[in-house]
Simulated assay, not measured.
Amino acid sequence: MVRALSAPAAAPAAWHADPYTDALRSGRGPLFLRRPDGWLLPLDVERWCAEPDLADRTVLRRCRGAVLDIGCGPGRLVAALAADGVAALGVDVSPEAVRRTRDWGGSALCRSVFDRLPGEGRWDTALLMDGNVGIGGDPAKLLDRIAQLVVADGLLMVETAPYEIDERLRVRVSGAHGAAGGDFPWARLGTAALLSCARPLGWRPAGRWTAAGRPFVALRRG
Score class of each variant (00 low, 15 high):
Ala218Pro: 02
Val67Ser: 01
Thr125Lys: 02
Asp153Gly: 15
Arg99Cys: 08
Pro162Asp: 10
Gly182Lys: 04
Pro19Thr: 09
Gly154Thr: 08
Thr160Ala: 01
Ala80Trp: 06
Ala87Leu: 14
Leu60Trp: 00
Asp124Phe: 08
Asp153Arg: 15
Gly175Asn: 10
Ser107Phe: 09
Asp130Glu: 11
Ala9Tyr: 04
Gly106Met: 08
Ala80Pro: 09
Ser112Asn: 03
Leu201Phe: 03
Gly154Trp: 00
Asp44Glu: 14
Ala176Val: 06
Val98Gly: 12
Phe32Pro: 03
Arg188Trp: 01
Val171Arg: 07
Gly121Ala: 12
Phe184Thr: 02
Val113Met: 05
Trp104Glu: 13
Val86Cys: 13
Arg47Ser: 11
Leu128Cys: 02
Leu189Lys: 15
Gly178Trp: 04
Ala108Lys: 13
Ala126Gly: 08
Ala187Asn: 07
Trp123Leu: 07
Val93Gln: 08
Val2His: 11
Gly38Asn: 01
Gly85Ile: 04
Asp103Cys: 05
Asp69Trp: 01
Pro205Thr: 14
Leu41Tyr: 13
Trp15Gly: 01
Gly181Ser: 02
Arg204Cys: 09
Arg170Cys: 04
Leu128Met: 06
Tyr163Gln: 14
Gly38Glu: 00
Ile146Lys: 14
Ser94Gln: 05
Arg145Met: 00
Ala66Trp: 05
Met1Asp: 09
Glu164Met: 04
Leu31Arg: 12
Val151Ala: 15
Pro162Lys: 09
Asp22Pro: 10
Arg100Cys: 06
Cys63Leu: 03
Ala17Asp: 00
Ala79Asp: 03
Pro74His: 05
Pro185Arg: 14
Tyr20Pro: 02
Val151Arg: 15
Gly202Arg: 11
Arg100Thr: 08
Gly73Met: 10
Asn132Ser: 12
Val59Gly: 00
Arg62Lys: 12
Ile146Pro: 04
Ala108Ile: 11
Arg102Ala: 07
Val98Ser: 10
Leu149Arg: 14
Gly181Val: 06
Glu96Pro: 00
Thr58Phe: 01
Pro185Ala: 15
